[in-house]
């Protein structure tokens, strides 16, 4: 647990519950992170993200004026370099998927231990996807849902997983670590992480294409 330094990772904590917000902020600061802002609503999160440009945003899923997916999109609009880590309760699954599609790069359940949280924030700060088994299961489900739906004529083909990506994602969803997966598949854990990142990027890209197409079709530019 190091002291706060000038190059400490800057963090914004978004949660409408003051006790949780303060507790997490305290934990983060004592671990050497710099909490530059806290917010209790989607609107406040967008304003403060723009003002403070945090490197990491810890995002709750239920906010009084919207959900975490809206908040993630709004924050990334004004602070594009921020990495959003979603903290959620297990019951908000669909919201979590929406937040990930909106650009969040990780998902952790609120009951995770402080050590798990700090590890996740560290990984997020470095731009790595924090892929819990839960998130892998959601992403896997989303690819399968997209594959089962017919693509409209003339539309961009929906993104799909390569056989290797599918294999890796299933193993992550079953709770194996990158190292364990690397051993099983006889590849380096870096390769495993790259596969995982790729699945997430394709999903976010397709979401952006979808949104753009929607905007063009409905002349919402």
């Amino acid at each position: 647990m190091g002291p706060v330094t000038d190059d400490a990772t800057t963090i914004m904590v978004v949660d409408d519950h003051p006790m949780w917000r303060d507790g997490v902020s305290r934990d983060l600061e004592s671990a050497g992170f710099q909490v530059v802002a806290t917010a209790d609503s989607v609107a406040a999160a967008a304003t403060r993200a723009q003002a403070t440009q945090p490197q990491v945003v810890l995002m709750d899923m239920q906010l009084p004026d919207g959900n975490g997916a809206d908040a993630t999109a709004r924050v990334l609009e004004v602070a594009p370099q921020a990495n959003v880590l979603v903290l959620s309760a297990s019951s908000e699954r669909d919201d979590v998927l929406q937040a990930v599609k909106a650009g969040a790069c990780g998902y952790l359940v609120k009951s995770a231990s402080a050590t798990e949280l700090l590890d996740a924030v560290n990984a997020t700060a470095q731009g790595q996807a924090v892929f819990t088994p839960g998130l892998a299961g959601l992403v896997l489900g989303e690819y399968r849902r997209m594959a089962s739906e017919p693509t409209p004529v003339g539309a961009e083909p929906t993104p799909s997983l390569t056989p290797r990506e599918l294999e890796v994602l299933r193993l992550v969803a079953k709770g194996l670590s990158a190292k364990q997966i690397g051993r099983r598949l006889d590849v380096s854990h870096r390769t495993v992480e790259n596969h995982v990142q790729a699945t997430l990027r394709k999903l976010q890209l397709s979401n952006r294409i979808e949104l753009t197409r929607y905007a063009i079709e409905h002349e919402l530019d």
């Binding site: 297990s90 699954r93 669909d94 979590v96 998927l97 819990t132 088994p133 839960g134 998130l135 892998a136 299961g137 959601l138 896997l140 489900g141 989303e142 399968r144 849902r145 969803a173 709770g175």
Partner: peptide, 8 residues
């Protein structure tokens, strides 16, 4: 027990 599954 860690649970993962689709959103639907």
């Amino acid at each position: 027990v860690a649970f993962s599954g689709p959103a639907d």
